[in-house]
Design a protein around this nucleic acid. Structure first.
Lengths: 344, 344
DNA sequence: CTGTTAGCGCATTCAA
DNA sequence: TTGAATGCGCTAACAG
């Protein structure tokens, strides 16, 4: 159906090798070059990347496996990731794990079958089991956003614990002593953030009564329900730390529907900006992640690995494998107006 | 590096054909089947889809080209699209056009080089120029969300005009006579929605002063600034139609920051739900698009076309090409509390 | 049911 | 600089 280099050969009278050389940027006589270019236009020729990949054994595509593609955080990262990778000449094949570890496993095998040159994974869970196949096959992998405690692959993430520590410190700095935490314990980022919160509370000598610690799913529902319960407490907290974007969403809804107002009756600070902070009134105080840098560093590390694998295949004498990297970027606090001094 | 069927041949002593038959679900002796399965496990064999694709001339991947991947609407659709396509055995290769028609063109050529079996395109602009290459190459294309007035490809979208008509009718039904429209004229959906608004205003004999028609980009900024300007009018509108998600976002921000309150001072209804409607207080009244159906119908049409192309290649006598389809799904209005009766 | 053979479209030796 | 030959890993006839 589509034109091949053989068609170009017929039209130009040149050999396959010459045409191939043209396609790959070799030197040839200007007249031959012109002939080929004309033929390509006329025939609407397009290189068949499958055939090329079969020969070169690189597909020039990167597999990206995300825990949930409908998640706003995921999309934003995907956007930066894609443009960066594209600049480097790579295609992106994205697979959605829908928060299902089994599907995640399938996705990875699937992409391996597609012979992707590398894998960026935003993992669903805490177990590194899904890493076995790509590692065995020697496919470079970079973990993004969430680490799984496996030192065989690189990882790029933010300082969840420290940033959360600072956030709670900030609440305390405004005089709050009854502070609640709504978070997720189903994902590693949630656990790290919780850790930071607890450390800050301890340092401030603030007790965290069980009723003020709401751990659950990474979901709007969890945020909504938790906030409702907190506000219904006989002695409700005066400030709340919200562990992720979905929880923020739900919690803000709950506050809006209640008789409480923010920040007069209740102060809140959230982790992950995205949209709400701009929308809510007052603007939310949030911990924002450096999304662009997260994506850029991920691509940098991945391409490094790929480059390394290539040189290893070429020369047998390995020029030292790149060291394992766990890159921890700084999330920073941006104050809106959702945290106010505790009322006496 | 990775194992091939020749390695399996060596281990099992069977021929390539037998192994290939196994991989493609043919019948073979149980003992041979067992041998192959063992070898596959031992060698961590994985079919090389590039090689397979080269022979079968199908890649079992669908290219998806979106106008902006950081857009929440896009992500939601992508999520449904991906899971549907995956169920059908297809991989998805997503490319982001970043609202740039040139990049869109590049993306399409790029995916054609990857030999995708079909293309789902959420177009950037109004010109159908980008359709030439895939149509010439005989690659099935389905347009999603936005049509470009080209009857050579199928399209799935919602009844933007009618739904907007209903939305404005609803405002009028609440007694509003000073109604403003904030929309986008840079994309076709925006134009269609505007059309519906104007028709409704006309039917209601409501004049639309120039100051109350805010046309601009599909952006948060446009929504924000337009709403600010509307509220600053000597005689501000009592109700506003907001043409898309980004505009809603910006407009709600502007209202929140103003001394106006919704719906007491100003009623609003928006097009595209997504997140805000849940977040804002009161809940927004919105026109919601049937995202899941949009994705499902798109996949259905695309697979139909692909199936057809395959049978055409097999039998020379074409069994009638599927007719051109422009599928228009119904968006429905969900009332929140952001529209109130006009105060006397 | 199994084995043999011949390409798919291209890059890459090696000669010329 | 160019051309002829070889093979990437697999499927699809065909023959056994």
């Amino acid at each position: 159906m589509a034109a091949t280099i053989r068609d170009i050969k017929k039209v130009t009278g040149l050999s396959l090798a010459t045409i191939s050389k043209y396609l790959n940027g070799g030197n040839l006589l200007p007249e031959n070059r012109a002939k080929i270019e004309k033929a390509i236009k006329d025939l609407h020729y397009e290189v068949n990347e499958m055939a090329r990949g079969l020969v070169t054994s690189q597909s020039m595509t990167i597999g990206v496996v995300v825990f949930d593609i409908s998640n706003v955080f995921t999309c934003s990262v995907l956007s930066f990731l894609g443009s960066r990778l594209r600049e480097a000449g790579y295609a992106v094949m994205t697979c959605d794990s829908q928060n299902d570890p089994q599907l995640e496993m399938d996705n990875i095998r699937f992409l391996m079958g597609k012979k992707v040159d590398g894998l960026v994974i935003m993992p669903v869970g805490l177990s590194p089991a899904f890493l076995e196949p790509p590692i065995k096959a020697g496919i470079p992998v970079v973990l993004l956003d969430r680490s799984v405690g496996d030192s065989r692959v690189d990882c790029v993430k933010v300082n969840n614990s420290e940033a959360s520590y600072e956030a709670v410190k900030l609440l305390a700095g405004y005089g709050h002593r009854k502070i609640a935490v709504v978070g997720s314990d189903t994902v590693v980022t949630g656990r790290e953030r919780l850790e930071g919160c607890l450390a800050a509370l301890k340092d401030e000598n603030i007790a965290l009564p069980p009723a003020c610690l709401k751990l659950g799913a990474h979901s709007i529902e969890h945020g909504y329900q938790s906030m409702q319960e907190l506000l219904a407490l006989p002695d409700p907290p005066t400030a709340v730390f919200l562990g992720n974007f979905e929880i923020i969403l739900g919690a803000v809804m709950a506050i809006n529907e209640s008789s409480f107002s923010c920040p007069d009756d209740i102060s809140v600070i959230g982790f992950d900006d995205l949209i709400v902070s701009k929308l809510s009134n007052p603007r939310l105080s949030v911990v924002v992640q450096p999304l662009r840098s997260l994506a850029e560093e991920t691509v940098r590390l991945l391409l490094n690995r790929i480059e390394y694998e290539k040189t290893v295949e070429a020369d047998a004498d390995a020029p030292d494998a790149p060291a394992h990297v766990e890159l921890v970027l700084k999330a920073r606090i941006v104050e809106g107006g959702s945290v106010a001094r505790r009322r006496e």
